[in-house]
Simulated scan of single mutants.
Amino acid sequence: MFLRLLFIALGVSSDAFAVSISKGLSVDRLRARHHWLVGLWFGGFQTLLPLLGYFAASMLQDSLAAVDHWIIFGILSAIGVNMIREGVYGEEEGANGEESFSWRQMLPAAIATSIDSFGVGAGLALLGINIWLSALVIGLVTAAASILGLRIGYAVGSRWRKPARITGGIILIVMGIQILLDHLMNA
């Protein structure tokens, strides 16, 4: 049972991991504060959304499922296009990328990467699984994956910042398209 929960947590943390890589690409100097921010924002939302999904169960799941792929596609594509623009034109996001960690940037990214967790929480309600343990595991795994992604992005970005930003932007756009197509094909 715990192994299944761990795989679910790894699956839903993959979006936060990818976005954290892009955050790592945006900074010239990685600080401890950046680790805390990605861990708390992404891990926190990945803890909160399964709880909300569990308690809302199927009441909101159907209406959210109709648009979640469009929301995720739009946010990931916007972040990706911005990264490509910065990579091509060499624009920085403020003094050494600090704007990338502002609440205005982190809140939409945390919501976009956590929407699937809402559905997971609703599914866990139908299975009768302990939601408190599940939400905690999902949140902790996501926080760890986000910090790892941040460090990977920073390591790659410090050496190959421009090509890495362009590649990261393309990856985020492709992820958004893949999520959109998966939902449209399965609808």
Rank of each mutant, 00 (worst) to 15 (best):
M1D: 03
F2M: 13
L6K: 06
L6C: 05
F7Q: 12
F7V: 14
L10I: 13
S14D: 06
D15V: 10
V19F: 08
L25C: 07
V27P: 01
D28E: 15
R29K: 14
R29M: 06
L30D: 03
L30P: 08
H34G: 05
H35N: 09
H35K: 11
G39I: 06
W41H: 11
W41Q: 01
F42I: 03
G43N: 05
F45E: 06
L48N: 03
L52E: 02
G53D: 05
G53Q: 12
Y54Q: 03
F55A: 05
F55Q: 01
A56K: 01
A57E: 00
S58Y: 00
Q61H: 04
A65S: 14
H69N: 12
I71T: 11
I71G: 05
I75T: 08
L76V: 10
S77R: 01
V81I: 13
V81T: 00
N82D: 15
E86M: 15
G87S: 12
G90A: 12
E91A: 10
G94K: 09
A95L: 10
E98N: 14
E98F: 02
E99D: 08
E99N: 07
S100A: 15
S100T: 12
S102Q: 04
R104K: 06
Q105Y: 06
P108G: 02
A109M: 15
S114A: 08
D116L: 02
D116H: 08
F118Y: 14
A122Q: 04
L124F: 13
A125P: 00
N130E: 11
I131F: 00
I138T: 04
L150D: 13
L150E: 13
L150V: 07
R151T: 14
G153P: 07
G153F: 00
Y154L: 08
A155M: 04
V156Q: 12
R159V: 13
W160F: 11
K162A: 05
K162R: 15
A164N: 07
R165Q: 14
T167K: 01
G168E: 08
M175P: 00
M175G: 00
G176K: 13
I177S: 02
I177Y: 09
Q178G: 07
Q178F: 05
L180T: 01
N186P: 01
N186F: 13
N186K: 09
N186L: 11
A187T: 03
